[in-house]
Every structure is written in C-alpha cells, then in structure tokens.
Amino acid sequence: MTVLTNSVVSILSIPIITQKSLSNHQISFVVLVFDIRRFSVHDGPGIRTTIFLKGCPLHCLWCHNPESRQTVPEKYTRKNRVGNRVFEVEEQIGKYWNTDSLMKEILRDGPFFEESGGGVTFSGGEPLMQAGPLKEILRECRKQGVHTAVDTCGFAPEKDFREVAALCDLFLFDLKYADPAKHLEYTGVSNDIILSNLYSLKYQTASLIIRIPIIPSVNDGQENLDNSIEILNKLKDKIIQVDLLPYHTLGNHKYTDIYPESEKAEFPLLEVNILNHWMLTLIKEGFVVTSGG
C-alpha cells in the first residue's frame, strides 16, 4: 500500500501545462496561488471567488497571512485528526496554476456571480507581483464578462499598475500609513510609489475602494487619520467606499502552526471608540464607510 504524502484532492492538484494547452493559447502563464476561497463575501460586491496570489514585497508587522509572503512554494505539515490519532501530512503552500485552469476554476461559480453581482477578487500576497499572469487572467475575465477586483497594497512598477488598472473593474486599495517614514518602518517600504499609483487611478475607469487596516498603537492616531483624509480627498469623487479593517488576531494560529520559529509582533485589540471616531470622521468628510469588511 502506498502512503500518500501530498495533498491529493484533485481540484487542488497542480495543473500540468501540456503541449496541447500551450498550442491552444499562445501565451499561457503560470501563476503561484496559495489559496482559493469560494463564496467569499467580504472582498468586493456580491458572491466572489478570491484567488490569493503568493508573494508580497511588503512585510507588515501585523500581517495575518504570513504564508502569502514568499514567492516560492513552502512545505507545511498539516495535522489531521481521526478519533484520538493525529496524522501528519506534508502539504505544499502555494501551487502553480496555468491561467486556463485558473479561469475554469473561477467560472465554476459563474451562476452565483451573476445572481449576486459578484465576481473574482485577486488578493495576496500582492497580486501585482505576478503582473504578467494577472493581466492575462484579467483580460480573459473581461472577455467572459466576469467582474474583477484587485486587492493591492499599491506597491508595484508604474507600468504594471497602469496596465492592470486598465483591465480590472475594481481596486481594493490598501492605505496602511499616510506618513512615508512610518510606512517604511512598519511595512518595510516607503509609500511614495504606492501613493503615486493611487493618484494615477483618478484617470482610470476602474472603481476604487480604499481599505485602511487600523492597528492599535501603530496607525490609529489622530495624525494618521488627518493625513489619510488629506490623501483621500485628492480622490474624493473616485472613491466609492472606505473599508476600515480593525486589527484582528485571526491569523495568529498560522504563525504557531506554520512558522513555529518565527515571531509575530503582538498588538492590542482596537478600542471600539477609536474605530467609531474614524468612522464618524470619514463619514463627515463625505465618504461611504464600512467597518469589518
């Protein structure tokens, strides 16, 4: 009897690029994906499939998807319980998909996209780190009438960003810190490229939702709120909604389970009155605001 070592659920297995699929599509890209979630209901309008692309240029101290950072597949030992016994299975975080297979996977929930006004969301990691295949899939989605959203931190070469912006329907754009120095301190990069990409959206057709993670004791102060509003006001007519994302500890178990050796910075939970203050201030400025998203 062969002992199976890899995750073999067939839909998650690595699609193999054959000669045939290459000849059908002149450019068939390969994209590294670490998770696909269907019936995702908090990443844009309607019922969505969220594709999490692996690899991120930022290192936010509060990151709740640590497995999204590296640009290569990683090994991970999953523990399955059967009764009182625990079985360890080697799994791979991050699988290569060709764009054809990924497209097929996206279209599986087509009926639900249509009923709900939903579609597909590319998240990460930072999806623009794989701008080539991302553009290819966005192009195909547009051809097939699937609504697309790109959840980005905005840190990408100007050319890639512009091209992706021309191909997608909606940006979920993170505004992590208004101050460039603080941005560098907490995420590992400055935000000048990010802001310049953000401002460029003023002249693009894609809709824009701003997402602000609010991390207690980091960026929840009045100064960052004021500075953020200053940025947002430059795009006032463009922004359809602002999502406030209070810091949560949902990802903490991933550190212990997947990266037992790494350390994660701990932050307190956000106080409700601070969240309310942000919401009210932004609403007074004329923005549509949600929290939790």
């Binding site: 659920v9 059967v82 009764g83 299975v89």
Partner: peptide, 11 residues
Amino acid sequence: PEFRHQLLYLT
C-alpha cells in the same frame, strides 16, 4: 487507521 485516514482526508 492509516488507510482510514487516507479515505477520510486524502480521497
């Protein structure tokens, strides 16, 4: 037990 684990989780 190992085979049952395969049946439950890896099938």
